[in-house]
Design a protein around this nucleic acid. Structure first.
Length: 202
DNA sequence: CCCTGATTCGC
DNA sequence: GCGAATCAGG
């Protein structure tokens, strides 16, 4: 991949928006975050260190329109960051478990996040998720690391697979989506818009 | 550990 | 110009 004008534009835009180099790299594809950072420097739009108030950030749009004239607020309107929470499910269960953790005697970064005997995250019934999602989920489960309860860490997907009452049970264990309790695929089935899961007959 | 950006330096 | 390797910090 080369730095076409278009790709550079995306880079500039995202960088000015405060996106991280890795996020930009992921968006562009075909490049690593190092490549992005390198390019950022070559383009001379580096200044982003702490303490630097950034005098003249990004004029972006030349016409400040002196006075009067409608403000024309163009809010970023990022589709992301939607209301996803969904209280009272796996998340809260896990979150609480983490909060409770007496820690103190925790050896190192090998802490388990779900105390033994804690209720397990709910396994969405098959008829509660879309067929597509279910299909892709199956695919992911083939790649699951099949971790046991004790092997889970803050950054392993906590999606349960199989029947907890049998030996045929494990957790996905794939790398979690930044900040989330599940991997990318499972975040998809875990955090569904109300509209999507609504009335899916039971 | 994971992630961030910053720099270096061979290509 | 490019970006992997490496550095420095959170």
């Amino acid at each position: 991949m080369s730095w076409t004008e278009e790709r550079v534009e995306t880079l500039k835009k995202m960088w000015s928006e405060g996106q991280s180099a890795s996020q930009i790299a992921k968006e562009l594809g075909g490049v690593t975050r190092n490549a992005v950072i390198g390019k950022v420097h070559r383009l001379g739009l580096s200044n982003r260190t702490a303490g630097t108030p950034a005098p003249e950030p990004q004029p972006a749009e030349p016409a400040p329109a002196p006075r009067s004239a409608a403000p024309a607020q163009a809010a970023p309107a990022t589709p992301e960051a939607g209301p996803e929470p969904e209280p009272g499910t796996a998340d809260t269960a896990v979150a609480e478990a983490e909060a409770d953790a007496p820690a103190k005697a925790t050896p190192a970064s090998r802490r388990q996040i779900i105390p033994a005997g804690q209720p397990l995250p709910p396994q969405p019934s098959a008829n509660e998720i879309s067929p597509e999602a279910l299909a892709s989920q199956r695919e992911v489960e083939k790649r699951a690391r099949k971790l046991s309860l004790m092997e889970l860490t803050e950054r392993t997907c906590k999606w349960p697979i199989g029947d907890p009452a049998t030996p045929n049970f494990w957790f996905c264990g794939l790398p979690v989506e930044q900040g989330k309790p599940y991997c990318e695929a499972h975040v998809g089935v875990a955090f569904q818009p109300m509209s999507a899961r609504r009335d899916r007959r039971r």
